[in-house]
Amino acid sequence: MDVIVSQLFTGASTGAVLLLVALGLALTFGQMGVINMAHGEFLMAGAYTAYLTQQAVSNSDVSLLIALPLGFLVAGMLGLLLEMTVISRMYHRPLDTLLVTFGVGLILQQVARDVFGAQPKAVASPTWLHGQLDLLGYGYPVTRLFIVTIAVGCLAGTAAVLKYTALGRRIRATVQNRDLAETVGVSTRGTDRVTFFLGSGLAGVAGVALTLVTATVSNLGTSYIVPAFLVVVAGGIGQIKGSVIAAFALGIVGAFLTYYTSGSLATVLTFVLVVAFLQIRPQGLFTVRTRSLA
C-alpha cells in the first residue's frame, strides 16, 4: 500500500511537470498545429530567467515569485519573435516548420551555452518551499506540491481564457476555421501571434518551476520536448482536457514502471505503451463530435 501511495504521489508530481510543459504545447501544437521543436528552449529561457532573477534579487524567497511572471514574458516574447520571423512564413508546411524550429532550438541552446557556460546553474528554492508535507502517511516535498499548484493554476487560467474571454473565442475560431474566422472579422494573423505568445510564455513558467527540481542547463528542454508532444498527441490534438489526463497518466505509469524496473527501461516501456495506445486510438483520448465537418 505504501508503495502504491508513494508512487502515485511521485507520478502525480511528474505528471504536473509534464502538464506544465505540455500546456504551452497544447496551445501552439494542439490548437494551432505548429510543430515547434524550439518549445523546449523556451523552457530553458524560463529557467535561465529564474537564475538571472536570483542573481539580481539575492533573496530567494521573493526571486521565484518575480521570476514566474518574468519567465512568462521572456519566453512569450521569444515565441512571438519566432512566430513573426519564421513560423508565420511556414503555416501549412509542417515538415519545414519542424526542421527549422529544430535548428532554432539548437541555436538557442548554443547561445545559452556561450552566455551561461556549460556548467549547470543552481537556483536556490525559497525557504517557504523547504520541507515536506505529510499526505496519507507519505512525505510529499513542498516544492513538488508547489509545481502541482502552478500547473493547476496555469491550466485553470488557460482554460478560463479559452472558454470565457473574447481572445479565447478568437483563438478557438481561428483554430476551427481560419477562413471563416477572417470573414467574420477576426484578425487571424494577430490571433496567431497572441496564441504563440501565450503558449511560449507557459513554457517559460514551466522552466521557472523546473528550477525547483532540476539544475538549469542549456539542453534542459530536450529532455521534456518529446514527452510533452506525447502528452498532447495521446490526449487528443486540440483537447486540453485530454492533455491533462495524458500528462498524469504518463507520470503515474512512468513512476510505477520506474519502481518495478529501472529509469531507462521505464522510459522505453512508457513510449511503447503510448505507441500501442495510438495504434488502437490514433485520435488520442478525446475527439471532437460534430454532425459535419463544416
Partner: peptide, 20 residues
C-alpha cells in the same frame, strides 16, 4: 455568409454569436 452552412463546430451557438 459562405456556402455550406459554415460555423465554428466546437463552439456553442452563443459563442458563435459572441465571437462578433
Amino acid at each position: 455568409v459562405p456556402q455550406g452552412q459554415q460555423c465554428f463546430p466546437q463552439m456553442t451557438t452563443m459563442e458563435n454569436l459572441q465571437l462578433i
